[in-house]
Computed example of a mutant assay.
Amino acid sequence: MSRSHVLVPLDGSPLADDALVHALDTFDCRVTVLNVVTPLDASMSESGVLEPGEERRESARERADDLVDRAEKRAAAADRSVETAVETGDPAETILDFVGDRDVDHVVMGGHGGERHELARRLLGTVATTVVTEAPVTVTVVR
């Protein structure tokens, strides 16, 4: 089946970078890279665990912009282009919403180890597990 729009969620990990390379090498269609900035609750900042709200948001946004810029450069090096998006929210929910709202017909993402007491999460990671389980489209997990 030919694809027309592939989504690659990026989180800065090596496996996410591998997922982008895989998508660019495999699919000759529109590719969108998405970084999801996760909002943190205020109590984490207030207790000193994280930077105060505005500084943390700015830092997270700069990191997101850097990730999508790197993805554009990686695509250009492969003589391709990618569309980019930065969204804020729960990563799994935001990816699933993006798929539904933007006519995505395939997701390629990195898998990560998660909680040790659940085999699926250990093999894929919590975000990847949720996307694989709930996405209405094919999901390729790069490990």
Rank of each mutant, 00 (worst) to 15 (best):
M1A: 13
V6I: 10
V8Y: 00
L10Y: 03
G12H: 05
P14W: 07
L15S: 11
A16I: 03
A16G: 11
D17G: 15
H22Y: 13
A23D: 08
D25W: 04
D28W: 05
R30G: 05
R30M: 03
N35C: 08
V37N: 03
T38I: 12
T38N: 10
L40Q: 09
D41C: 05
M44W: 10
M44P: 00
E46W: 11
E46S: 12
S47R: 15
G48W: 03
E51K: 14
E51C: 06
P52D: 13
G53Q: 11
E54D: 15
E55M: 13
E55I: 13
R56W: 08
R57M: 12
A60P: 03
R61N: 11
R61Q: 13
R63K: 15
R63E: 14
A64P: 03
A64R: 09
D65A: 14
D66Y: 04
D69Y: 08
E72S: 13
A75N: 03
A76V: 06
S81M: 09
S81Y: 07
S81P: 05
V82H: 02
T84Y: 04
V86Y: 00
E87P: 03
T88M: 09
G89K: 02
G89E: 04
D90L: 06
P91Y: 04
P91R: 02
T94I: 01
T94F: 01
I95P: 02
V99L: 06
G100F: 09
D101R: 10
D101N: 14
R102P: 01
H106I: 01
G111Q: 01
G111Y: 00
H112T: 08
G113L: 11
G114M: 06
R116N: 14
L124V: 09
V127K: 02
A128Y: 01
A128Q: 06
T130A: 15
V131F: 02
V132P: 05
V132S: 07
A135P: 00
T140L: 08
T140F: 07
V141Q: 04
R143M: 06
R143C: 06
